[in-house]
Amino acid sequence: MNPYLQASALACERDGRLLFEHLALSLGAGDMLQVSGPNGAGKTSLLRVLAGLMAPTAGHVRCTAKPLWVGHAAGIQERLSAEENLAWLCALHATAPGKVPATAPATEGRAAYRAAIWQALAEVGLRGFEDVPCHSLSAGQKRRVALARLYLPAPRLWVLDEPFTALDIQAVAQLEAHLAAHCEQGGAVVLTTHHLLGRRPPGFAELALGGATA
C-alpha cells in the first residue's frame, strides 16, 4: 500500500545552524511518529517541512494528499466563535462534516453540517461554548477548539505540533486514545510532544532530533 507521506534525504538549516540532515521517513496506514528532542532541536521545523509549509534545505517530501496541520498557532480566530471557526476550517479544507445525500434539500445539509460541528465540540468537552467568541475562552479551551477538527472528517495524515499543550490530564488521555484509534483505523499521525505517550498504537515509532547531527 502506498504511504501517505514519504521523505528522503531531508536536511534543514536555520540561521546557519544545521538542524538535521540525511533524514528519511515514510508514513503509511497505522503509523504514528513521535518526534522528540530538546528545545531548538528542529522538531517544529521538521513538522513544518512535512506539512508543506516550508521547503527543506535539501531533499524531497512527497504527500499523497494535503495533511491536516495543527501548529502552535492553531488557526483559531479570536473574534469568531468556536462553531464559526470550525465551519470555516472545514470549508477551507473542503471536508464536509455530516455527509448528506446530494438530493437532500440545502437546509437539511446545513443542519447536518451544524450538528456534526456541535457533536465534535461536545467530544472535546465544549458543549455550551459553541457560540462563545474564542477570545473569552481559556488557552486550554482554545486548544480544544483546534483539536475538535480531529473529530470531523479530515485527511488521513495528521501533523500535530505539541497537541497536548495547555490540556488538562483527562483531555490528554482522551486525545491519546483518539490518536491511537485513528492509527488503528488506517490513519497516520506525526506529532511532537515532550511527554511520554500512554497509549501507543502498534505502528508507533520515535524519532530523536538533536545531538545526532551536532
Partner: peptide
Amino acid sequence: RSDFEDGSLEQMVLSPQ
C-alpha cells in the same frame, strides 16, 4: 496581521483551494 498571528494563514496556505 491577525490571520498571520493566529495561524489562519498557515491553514489557508495548506488548503486545497
